[in-house]
Computed example of a mutant assay.
Amino acid sequence: MSSLKQHPKISVTPTSIADVLIIEPKVFGDERGWFTESFNAQDFSGAVGLDVNFVQDNHSFSRQSTLRGMHYQLEKAQGKLVRVVSGSVYDVAVDLRKNSPTYGKWMGLELSAENHKQLWIPAGLAHGFLVLTPMAEFLYKTTDYYHPQSEICLAWDDPTVAIEWPKSPSFTPNLNPKDLAGLSWEQVPKF
């Protein structure tokens, strides 16, 4: 990836995982409310040094303690630009790229309607999130189409990866059957 460039409309911050970036669009506000350009292909490409073609937008609604993940597609691997438009989530990416300097590592970040932060997660990473508020609406753009035949789920609580989810001692995530059957780090195919 090219080096990050300063851009007047968005701020780009590297994370602890190679190529995963925090994107913060400029928010213009006054006593009436606020406005932000949530995505502009030219600005995104100019700031991150990537020419990305998004082909699908997804929108999910989830209730508190819902944990979705850790998902990825082995074929038709997807890069994702994710954000929250209502509520708050703890968003996580796990590096599955064998040639990456951060292979096997994870990073997490709170995304909320209030902070307007977005996360760029390139292809080759597993992704998931935990809903922190009574409800959350989550939007994400993908670089390839959903391909259920090649979807893989890494166990959200795999001890090798050891994601530190924000939780109370009595925390029990709300999981669907696919996420309950997530595979261990040793079992999941890597890139």
Results as ranks from 00 to 15, higher is better:
residue 46 G to Q: 04
residue 15 T to S: 10
residue 20 V to C: 09
residue 21 L to E: 02
residue 41 A to F: 03
residue 45 S to F: 00
residue 28 F to A: 14
residue 38 S to N: 12
residue 41 A to Y: 04
residue 20 V to N: 05
residue 31 E to M: 13
residue 32 R to N: 12
residue 21 L to P: 01
residue 51 D to E: 15
residue 20 V to Y: 02
residue 52 V to A: 08
residue 29 G to I: 02
residue 35 F to S: 07
residue 31 E to N: 10
residue 36 T to H: 12
residue 29 G to P: 09
residue 29 G to Y: 15
residue 34 W to P: 09
residue 16 S to D: 12
residue 37 E to G: 08
residue 49 G to I: 03
residue 15 T to Y: 13
residue 15 T to R: 03
residue 26 K to E: 10
residue 43 D to P: 02
residue 28 F to S: 12
residue 51 D to N: 15
residue 19 D to Q: 10
residue 23 I to R: 01
residue 15 T to P: 09
residue 48 V to E: 00
residue 12 V to D: 02
residue 22 I to E: 07
residue 17 I to N: 07
residue 12 V to F: 06
residue 41 A to W: 01
residue 10 I to P: 01
residue 18 A to G: 08
residue 50 L to D: 07
residue 30 D to C: 13
residue 16 S to Y: 04
residue 34 W to S: 15
residue 17 I to Q: 10
residue 34 W to D: 14
residue 26 K to Y: 09
residue 18 A to N: 10
residue 14 P to A: 12
residue 45 S to V: 01
residue 22 I to L: 13
residue 40 N to H: 13
residue 49 G to D: 11
residue 49 G to P: 07
residue 13 T to S: 02
residue 29 G to Q: 15
residue 37 E to M: 06
residue 21 L to C: 04
residue 18 A to L: 11
residue 27 V to I: 11
residue 27 V to T: 09
residue 37 E to D: 14
residue 36 T to S: 15
residue 16 S to N: 15
residue 40 N to P: 06
residue 14 P to K: 11
